[in-house]
Write a protein that binds this DNA or RNA. Structure first.
Lengths: 221, 221
DNA sequence: TTCTTATTCAAGTAGGTTCTTGAATAACAC
DNA sequence: GTGTTATTCAAGAACCTACTTGAATAAGAA
């Protein structure tokens, strides 16, 4: 038994990644980085924080081994450190879901009422993609589409959707997807498409889950 | 887009479980509870903290949905809230391992030099158990063995090992297991058994991983 | 070189966390 | 009822965190 000092030190280190993820803004950063690498300024915009604050959060995540960075000219690009981090972030969301607690009410107030939205899961989408009777829209911001997307998906960031409605092929069902179940972009897109009289539904989860399931992925060279 | 207040609130809640796990003492509690339910006082002893402090940590974990409690007479027993928590705790350890960083040095100082210890993995242990050419020792504290253990394992808590050396069947290899890779009990047992001239090795991971892999489990009564 | 842009650093303030101590409950035995 | 044991609550001291502001680097362009 003995050395409880060394044991404490060991567990204090094991827990560093949890401390890093234990902040809403840093969790938002990880959720965005799960889509692909991004620069500091882009990330600051995504999480609605100052660049200085975002930089400090990123450094905390970096020290904890949750993300890694590379320099390209004057910009620094951050990305998730590896698949263990993706599993960690997923397990965290699942733990929160299992707890229910306030989560339901908060999700409702952020995501709105989802009961009327049609959904489709990964396996079925994959089948219908093979049959070719479906149009897939990637409604995430453009840099995330460029980093990687579902093969054949069209990039239509949700804030450009209204202007580009006419360019979306007709005669087939539309499936919109975004970052994951806590992302509103696909919901908003499905509502807008439905209002326009199109048959639209959202992919149940998001791109990271598609990729993690080992399904095919395409990226802009 | 729209309501970044509601988004912040949502992520703040998603992250509650990470904050709860983001403390070495609470992580130790989770590591013990992964073996089975325990009372407050038992847990306080395990993590070398006062009962009042342990109680406060437990309540924090409870509020975050990481553990659950049941009362039995004058005692309150805590246990992990569900399988998502086990995955969370595992992903956290894996993230720390992938980062390396200080972890290596700290693990060495707490666990000692492991290079000379023989190990065996789950699959091989299961095969040798079927052949019956191996003695399995559960060297965790007794309440953890009582909660659940590998079928056929003998309970020999590591601090009783010296006194019970003579009771361990001879002529077969010995495999000791405990809580997991960051638990020293099996290491200490293997060293002691080797010093006594027995052929001994440790199970690579611990009981929770055995159980999570869907392998058979046995419990007292 | 100087200018520009992206990022990081440093210092300060408001608020949160951890552990301690001693008192308060809650269930049970007598 | 009283006494006993297990657990929780409350208040306080030392320390850590999150965000702000303004200055400092570092790479590249002119």
């Amino acid at each position: 038994m003995g050395d409880h000092r060394a044991k404490e030190a060991l567990f204090d280190v094991l827990v560093e990644a949890a401390r890093a993820l234990g902040n809403g803004r840093r969790a938002e950063l990880v959720d965005v980085l799960a889509q692909g690498e991004r620069s500091v300024e882009e990330l600051a915009v995504e999480i609605s924080q100052s660049v200085a604050n975002t930089s400090q959060h990123l450094q905390r995540l970096l020290r904890a081994g949750v993300i890694s960075s590379r320099r390209s000219g004057t910009r620094i690009y951050y990305s998730l450190a590896g698949p263990a981090v993706e599993r960690l972030w997923r397990a965290l969301r699942e733990t929160a879901e299992a707890h229910a607690g306030e989560l339901g009410a908060l999700a409702l107030s952020y995501l709105g009422d989802r009961t009327s939205l049609g959904t489709i899961n990964r396996d079925e989408l994959q089948r219908r993609l093979k049959q070719g009777d479906v149009v897939v829209l990637d409604v995430r911001p453009r840099p995330e589409y460029d980093a990687a997307h579902i093969p054949g998906a069209l990039s239509v960031p949700v804030d450009h959707l209204k202007a580009r409605l006419s360019q979306i092929p007709e005669g087939r069902d539309i499936v919109a997807y975004c970052r994951g179940s806590y992302c509103v972009y696909a919901d908003d897109a499905v509502r807008e498409l439905s209002d326009d009289g199109r048959r639209a539904m959202r992919l149940e989860e998001g791109f990271p889950e598609w990729k993690a399931a080992g399904l095919p992925v395409e990226s802009a060279t």
